[in-house]
Design a protein around this nucleic acid. Structure first.
Lengths: 335, 335
DNA sequence: TTGTACGCGTTATCAC
DNA sequence: GTGATAACGCGTACAA
C-alpha cells in the first residue's frame, strides 16, 4: 500500500524522479538513480494507483461492455473478442449484464461513465418503439461529450460508430440456401418480440421468400432466442400438417430446440424436414446444424480496437459491416 | 465533463456544500440550497468522478473476476452470478480471461490491483506442480495487504477464503449412480492434464469404483474439457471392444462429444452404452445428458457477496462447500 | 539530470 | 447550515 512518495523517500529522490522512472517517461534519468528507485519500489511492493494516475492524466484504460446476458454464447463470444484486444493493450474490461432492459442499460452505462471508461460497447440490439430510447440516446451523447467513446454492435438509434454484421442479409442468405436445396414451404421461428434483431432476421427471411416467388409458402411463428422457444414453436408446428420442407430459426439455440422437437416426434432431420439456424455458435457444431456464421468475435475485437485507437471523442459515426458466411452441415439436405 | 467545483459555482455555493447534497451525506442542508445544487448539477450534466471519490475514500466499487475463458459456459455462469450481486450493490465487475495461464493470471490480477478493486475472484482451478504457484501466491498476499479481498472458487494454494463445490464428491456420486444402474465396466474421460480440477474429478471416479470393488473395471482415458476431446477419446474407445457399460466424462461438453461419437458409430445410447457428465451446463439439457449439477451461479454470487460484505481485509481463510445434485436424464439407463 | 510546486475531483475536518 | 482547506496519489510544467 506504499505510494510514490514513500518509494521516493526510500530511494532518496524526489517524487517526480520516482514518477519518471516508474511510469516509463522519456525524461532522461541516470542509470544509478533509476536502479535505486526500482529497487525501492520492488522492496516496498509498490503498486501504482491507476486511480490517481487516471485522475491527473484524464484517461483510464477501462473498457466497458454492455451485454444482454453473458451466459448467452452470442454475447460471451463478443466479450471474448473485446477482452482479448483490451487486455493486450493493457486495458481491463468492465462487463455488465443488462437483461434486455433499456433502463438497466442506461444505469450501467452511467456507472461506467462515472469510472471514466475509455469507451463503452453496446453489444445488444435495441427494441422497436422503445419508450426509453431517447433517454438512452441522451445519456450516450452526454458520455461522448465527456470524451467517452461509444460503439454499438447493432444498428440502433445512437449517434455513434457501428461495427456490425448484416443479420438481415445473413437471414436472406440462409433462406436462399434452403430454397436452392429445393425447399419450398419454409417455416420461420421468430426471435423475441420487439427486438430489432428479431425483426431484421425475419425481414431477411421474408425478403428472400418474396424474391423467390415463395411469399405464400413462408410462414412465421412466434418464438424466441432460446432452446425452449424453438422447441415450443416446433411442437406447435408438428400437429398441423403438412409439415414444412424446412424450418429456419432466428438463431442457433432455437434451431436446436426445433431439431430436438422434431426428432422426439420421430420426424427425420434432414430426411423429412431440414433445419437451419443463424449465428454459428458452438452448439451448432455439436449438433451439426446448418447455419450462417456471424463475425461476433471480430465485432467485439474491432470495437475494442476502435476505442483504443481513437483516444479523442471525435470519431464520426461510421458504420462497418463485417461479412458472414454460410456453414452447411448435416441438418439440411436436398429435397 | 463538469466537476463539482463548477456545479458549486453555478449554484452559488461552496464545493463542500455541493458535495454534501450530491453524495447523499447525512449532513443537514437547507431545502433551498439543496434544490439549487441539484438543479445546477442537472443543468450541467454533472457526473461524479468515481476515480476521485475512490482516491479519497480509499475504496472502489470494482469487482474483479478472473476466468479461464468466458466463452466456456462453466465460467460464464459463474461470471453471471458475480455480476448479478455486484451490480445490485452498485459495483461494476471487471472481467479477465486468463486462458489457464498462471502468468496471465498474475498479470491481470495486478492490473486489477492497480485499479484498487474491492476484491478479486479466482474462478479457475490451479495446476499440479505449477512452477508459478508461489509467485501467484505472493501477488495475492500483496494484494490482500493492500486491502483487496481475494476469494477462490476452487481449492488452490492461496491463503484466501474458498467458496466452492466438491467436484470430487460430485464425480463420486455420479459414478455411484452409474454403478447403481448396474454398470460395471465404466470408462472415464479425463479433463485436461495437469489441472487440479481434472485430478479431483478422476479421483472421485476412481474412489467410487474402488469402494464398489470395481477397481479393475475402471478405465481412464486422456481427454479434456471440450467437445473435441470427448469425441476423440471416444473414437479411441470404440474400436477396442468390448465396449464399456458406461462412459463418464470429466465435464458435460466432453460428454456430449462422447455421446455424438457413439451415435455416429451407431451405438445406441443409453441402450448399449450409458453416458454421463459433470457440471449441468445448458447443453446438458439440450441433449438430455445425465449429469451432476454444480452450484456455479451460487459460487459466483456468494463470492461477490463476501467481497461486498467484508470491506476490511480481515476475513480468515474459511472454506465454504456448496452442495451439488444428481440430475438423471436420458443418456443413462439400467443395464 | 534532478527537484519544486501545482492540479486532477472528491471527501472530511474544522471553523464560522 | 455553510464555507475554507487539507488531504488522496500521481503526472508534469518549470526551475535549478
Amino acid at each position: 500500500m506504499s505510494s510514490l512518495v514513500e518509494v521516493a523517500r526510500a530511494a532518496g529522490v524526489a517524487v517526480s524522479t520516482a514518477s519518471r522512472v516508474l511510469n516509463g517517461s522519456s525524461h532522461p534519468i541516470s542509470a544509478a538513480t533509476r536502479a535505486r528507485v526500482i529497487a525501492a519500489a520492488e522492496r516496498l511492493g509498490y503498486s501504482p494507483s491507476a486511480l490517481a494516475r487516471a485522475l491527473v492524466s484524464r484517461s483510464t484504460r477501462l473498457m466497458g461492455v454492455l451485454v444482454s446476458d453473458i451466459v448467452n454464447p452470442y454475447f460471451s463470444v463478443i466479450a471474448r473478442g473485446v477482452d482479448d484486444v483490451a487486455s493486450r493493450a493493457g486495458y481491463v474490461t468492465m462487463l455488465s449484464n443488462v437483461d434486455r432492459r433499456t433502463d438497466i442499460e442506461i444505469n450501467r452505462m452511467k456507472t461506467m461513465r462515472d469510472y471514466r471508461a475509455a469507451g463503452v460497447i453496446f453489444a445488444g440490439s435495441g427494441y422497436v418503439d422503445d419508450p426509453q430510447a431517447q433517454e438512452l440516446a441522451a445519456s450516450v451523447r452526454q458520455a461522448q461529450e465527456q470524451g467517452i467513446q461509444v460503439v454499438s454492435l447493432t444498428m440502433r438509434d445512437l449517434d455513434c460508430p457501428v461495427i456490425t454484421s448484416d443479420a438481415q442479409t445473413a437471414a436472406y442468405d440462409i433462406t436462399d440456401h434452403l430454397i436452392s436445396l429445393g425447399h419450398r414451404r419454409i417455416d420461420f421461428i421468430e426471435g423475441p418480440p420487439g427486438m430489432v434483431a428479431s425483426k431484421q432476421r425475419r425481414d431477411g427471411f421474408l425478403a428472400c421468400m418474396r424474391d423467390a416467388g415463395l411469399a405464400e409458402a413462408a410462414q412465421c411463428h412466434p418464438g424466441g432466442f432460446d432452446y425452449e422457444a424453438g422447441h415450443a414453436a416446433t411442437m406447435r408446428i408438428i400437429p398441423r400438417p403438412p409439415l414444412p420442407d424446412a424450418i429456419l430459426a432466428a438463431n442457433d439455440e432455437a434451431a436446436v430446440g426445433a431439431l430436438n422437437a422434431l426428432r422426439q416426434a420421430h420426424i427425420d432431420v434432414p430426411g423429412q424436414v431440414s433445419v437451419a439456424g443463424i449465428d454459428d455458435l458452438r452448439v451448432a457444431q455439436f449438433v451439426g446444424l446448418t447455419t450462417v456464421s456471424l463475425p461476433l468475435y471480430e465485432m467485439g475485437a474491432m470495437a475494442a480496437r476502435h476505442i483504443i485507437d481513437n483516444p479523442t471523442g471525435t470519431g464520426s459515426a461510421t458504420t462497418t459491416m463485417l461479412s458472414h458466411r454460410l456453414i452447411p452441415r448435416e441438418t439440411t439436405a436436398r429435397r
